[in-house]
Every structure is written in C-alpha cells, then in structure tokens.
Amino acid sequence: MPASRPKKPGDPQHPRATGPLRSFGRIKSRAIKPLQAALFDTLLPSIAVPDPAHGPIDPRVLMPEAKEAWLEIGFGGGEHLAAQAGRRPDAVMIGCEPFLNGVASLLRHVDEGGLKNVRIHADDARAVVQALPDGSLDRIMILFPDPWHKARHNKRRLIQPAFAAELAGKLKPGGRLRFVTDWKDYAGWALERFLATPGLRWLADEAADWKVAPEDHVVTRYEEKRLGDTDPLFLEFEKI
C-alpha cells in the first residue's frame, strides 16, 4: 500500500493552504536516528494507510482477517498503540500522527515487536476519519491531544462539535471512544461537546470513573512527565 504522505525525515513540511485549522504543533524536532529513519523506506510503505484523498478507507481491506478495527488519533511515541496491538493481534490498529519523530518511534516498536496489525497515517487524522465508512470502528482513542489552553487558541483544539459528531458516526453500536487529557479546562471542553453529540453515552457514574485509569490503559512517557495542571482524566463514551 502506498504511503499517504511519502516523505523522509528532513523533507520539508507539505504546505497546508486549505483545510481545517491545524490541531497539532511541530512536525519534527530532534534528528531521527539512522535505524529508525531507514524504517521510513523499508517498513512504512508496507503498513501505511492509503492516501485518504484517493477515496474511502475500509478497515476490512487494511487487514481482512481482523475481528475489530481501532483508531488512535495522535499516537505520540507509539508506546500505547504498540502495546494495544500486542494485546489484540486480532484487531487492526490504525494510528495517525503528524509528528515524524513519533512515527519513527512507532515504526521501531512495530519492527522490534513483529507487530502485523498496525497501520500508520503519518499526517492529520481528520482526513482518515472522513474517509472511513460510518459504523466501521470498534474503538477510538485520543490520548493527551494538544490542549491549546490559551483562550485565543481554543479554536485549534481537535475536539470541536462537528468532529465529535463525525467520530460518533464512525463507531459501531456499542463501540467505545476514550478521551484522555491532563488539562482540566480541556476535559471540561471535551465533555461538554461529547455530551452534546447525538449517539454518545458517557460511561461515568462517579468521580472514580474519570479519575482512575481504565484497566487496559497503557501509561506512556508523555503521561509520566505530568505536563498538565491535573492528574490524567479519562472520559469514556459508548455509541448507542
């Protein structure tokens, strides 16, 4: 399968003159290690999600034998996605991340773990979400998205009413959406918008339901840095 944005570490950022406001920051920071950089040529082309601009993306085509389809939006360093993929080899794990260092890290995890069920989109997740058929996903995971916590930047937050509705539409009945943040304001912002989204039910009855990590949660290096203003808050929703 061709890479959705075939570029190597060091290539210039593609222009983004049109489309939604960017909901993420930098594309690349430190130099990518040679062994990881090589995986952009040797591994990524074989596990890349097809370019969403070329038409619909059916998870059943990405991995025909998969029993479930999961999507992680903004997988960071890839530890969480790789761990979930290792636990559930029967599920195709679609990961979207525009930060090239994070893509390189996940490629290393996939290579070293011999993971066969990971598919990568090295760009903005919103194009993939739009290309996925309605009712095609069993789980959606959004862990620690950029908070854009200054009021004038709130419009850049990933969770907006239209996108929340789009995510709900992609879930199967009974499918789950998990949103995790360590910023109180973003948790309230996201909760308000998800609660207003038809078809989603918040799975919380008491404070522990959003303050205690779910049993299958995987702690990442980012989470351990404690960069937000609160302990992680876990918002879990079900498609009804």
Rank of each mutant, 00 (worst) to 15 (best):
R60H: 14
R60S: 15
R60Q: 13
L62H: 09
M63Q: 12
M63D: 13
P64A: 12
P64N: 06
E65V: 14
E65Q: 11
A66K: 03
A66C: 03
K67F: 12
K67C: 14
E68C: 10
E68Y: 15
E68W: 13
E68M: 14
W70T: 02
W70Y: 11
W70K: 13
W70M: 06
L71E: 10
L71S: 07
L71W: 01
E72I: 06
I73R: 00
I73E: 03
G74L: 00
F75Q: 00
G76A: 02
G76H: 01
G76M: 00
G78N: 08
G78F: 05
E79H: 12
H80Y: 08
A82V: 06
A82Q: 13
A83T: 08
Q84I: 10
G86H: 11
G86D: 07
R87L: 13
R87S: 11
R87M: 15
R88G: 11
P89D: 06
D90P: 08
V92L: 00
M93N: 10
M93G: 05
M93F: 05
G95C: 10
C96N: 03
C96Y: 00
E97F: 02
P98V: 02
P98F: 01
P98S: 06
L100A: 04
L100N: 06
N101K: 05
V103M: 05
V103L: 08
A104N: 04
A104P: 10
A104C: 08
L106T: 02
L106A: 06
L107W: 15
R108K: 15
R108L: 15
R108M: 15
H109V: 08
V110A: 04
V110Y: 01
V110D: 02
E112D: 12
E112P: 12
E112C: 12
E112M: 07
E112K: 15
G113Q: 09
G113L: 08
G113F: 12
G113M: 00
G113W: 00
G114L: 03
G114R: 03
G114M: 04
L115Q: 07
L115K: 04
